[in-house]
């Protein structure tokens, strides 16, 4: 029985890790290639969740469909619509604000994106209210599924893990097999070189930003049926994402992947196990601290993370 629970928690950890990776993959590229400190990445997660939730509700109300397969289709369409709106909004910001900041200092980035984050939070509050917003899981993914004989697992969690892994594979193929990916890789370790290759660096930046926004929104909207979405949710996940990036090494997709799974597991299992041993006040507090302690440990020995590109 307890073995079952542990397996379930580990799968939850992997699922959470995959969501973190969707956040971290984009952000580590933004940091690595553009040397741009972006605090709004968590806001994209939150906005993705809100826009996705609204889209799904709107599509369901509009069509009035009740067939479970059609509702699942609407869910998928709503997810895509949510991502699209978030990416579009981010593209507007990239062109109007971020682009002016690239040449500035890190302090400029921190301040401007901090301001933007505050704005997004209020914007979401005005638009969607300050209550948590929920989305029902698609009706086809309600019942648990038997993954190996005798062990069942939430089919929805399994589905989003698979989608996340597919996105990760897609990203891997994009980065390792295409010309654009080659430029992105080159940019992460040596920015001047990309400019030297005659590539329009602005276009590359816009692309990386759109990619990052899309992945963050995907994570946000897929997580909404599990945790619901509310103002402020993006910041917590953003700080976790920072930890992931720092452990993995800024600019490294591979590092981000390994660190994401690691942090996902430590976080989930810590929250599950530590309260049993340490009680219900100290336990969760220490569990929440565990990942930061892991980060401190890694950084003490490797100040630029496990897989920092271009740093030997």
């Amino acid at each position: 029985m307890s073995l079952l629970l542990i397996i379930e928690q580990m799968l939850n950890g992997v699922q959470f890790g995959i969501m973190l990776f969707l956040m971290a993959a984009g952000l580590t590229l933004i940091f690595g290639i553009m040397d741009f400190v972006n605090l709004t990445h968590g806001s994209l997660y939150m906005l993705g969740g809100f826009f996705g939730a609204k889209s799904i509700a709107w599509l369901t109300a509009l069509t009035g469909w009740s067939d479970i397969w059609l509702l699942t289709l609407l869910f998928v369409l709503g997810v895509m619509l949510g991502i699209l709106i978030t990416v579009g909004l981010n593209a507007i910001l990239e062109v109007t604000i971020f682009r002016r900041l690239y040449s500035g200092t890190h302090l400029d980035h921190v301040l401007a994106t901090f301001g933007l984050l505050l704005f997004f939070n209020e914007f979401a509050k005005i638009l969607f209210g300050s209550e948590p917003m929920n989305v029902p899981k698609p009706p086809t993914l309600l019942s648990p599924i038997e993954i190996i004989p005798g062990i069942t697992y939430s089919s929805y969690r399994l589905a989003i893990t698979v989608v996340g892994i597919l996105a990760a594979i897609g990203l891997y193929l994009l980065i390792s097999r295409t010309r654009v990916g080659m430029l992105i890789r080159a940019g992460a370790s040596n920015r001047e070189m990309v400019a030297g290759l005659g590539m329009n660096i602005n276009r590359l930046f816009t692309l990386v930003f759109a990619l990052g926004a899309g992945l963050a929104a995907l994570a946000g909207v897929m997580t909404t049926p599990l945790t619901s979405v509310q103002v402020g949710i993006g910041e917590e996940i953003m700080i976790l994402t920072f930890v992931v990036i720092v452990i993995g090494g800024i600019g490294s997709i591979r590092g981000a992947f390994i660190a994401s799974i690691l942090i996902g597991l430590i976080d989930t299992i810590g929250r599950f196990l530590l309260p049993m041993f340490l009680g219900y006040t100290l336990g969760p507090a220490i569990a929440a601290m565990a990942i930061y302690l892991a980060m401190a440990g890694v950084l003490f020995f490797r100040p630029s993370g496990l897989f920092a590109p271009g740093r030997g």
Binding site: V37, H106, V243, V246, I250, T281, Y292
Partner: peptide, 25 residues
Amino acid sequence: RTVGVYFIMITLAFAQMLYYLANGI
């Protein structure tokens, strides 16, 4: 031990860690 973007994010992460610790006091 770190510089630049790392420093910004790590100071942020440490403060967050203490935030959780304070929750446990």
